[in-house]
Simulated assay, not measured.
Amino acid sequence: MHKSTVIASNVMPVILGLDFVLYGPTEDCKNVFPAAYAINLTHKYTFRAKDLLKI
């Protein structure tokens, strides 16, 4: 499987707002965890930035 496919399929729950990641095989953790961290950071930034934006 391609690396991008593995990452996208494993972090989809995080993208949808869930707070867990089921991934496999364990060798994929070196790709999945940084991607999940980046998505969590984006969610946190967006949540904090909405107070600064007048929407």
Rank of each mutant, 00 (worst) to 15 (best):
M1Q: 07
H2D: 10
T5Q: 02
V6D: 00
I7Y: 00
A8L: 04
S9L: 10
S9Y: 10
N10L: 04
N10R: 07
P13Y: 05
P13L: 06
V14N: 03
I15H: 14
L16S: 14
G17L: 03
G17W: 01
L18R: 11
L18K: 10
V21P: 07
V21Q: 11
V21C: 09
Y23K: 03
G24C: 05
G24S: 07
G24I: 00
T26M: 14
T26C: 15
E27W: 05
D28L: 08
C29I: 14
K30N: 09
N31C: 08
N31S: 13
V32M: 09
V32Q: 11
F33C: 03
P34V: 08
A35Y: 10
A36S: 09
Y37F: 15
Y37P: 00
Y37S: 15
A38L: 02
N40M: 11
L41M: 11
T42G: 13
T42W: 15
T42A: 13
H43C: 08
K44M: 08
Y45F: 12
T46G: 00
T46A: 07
T46K: 09
F47A: 14
F47N: 13
R48P: 00
K50L: 06
L53R: 06
L53C: 06
L53A: 09
K54Y: 11
K54W: 12
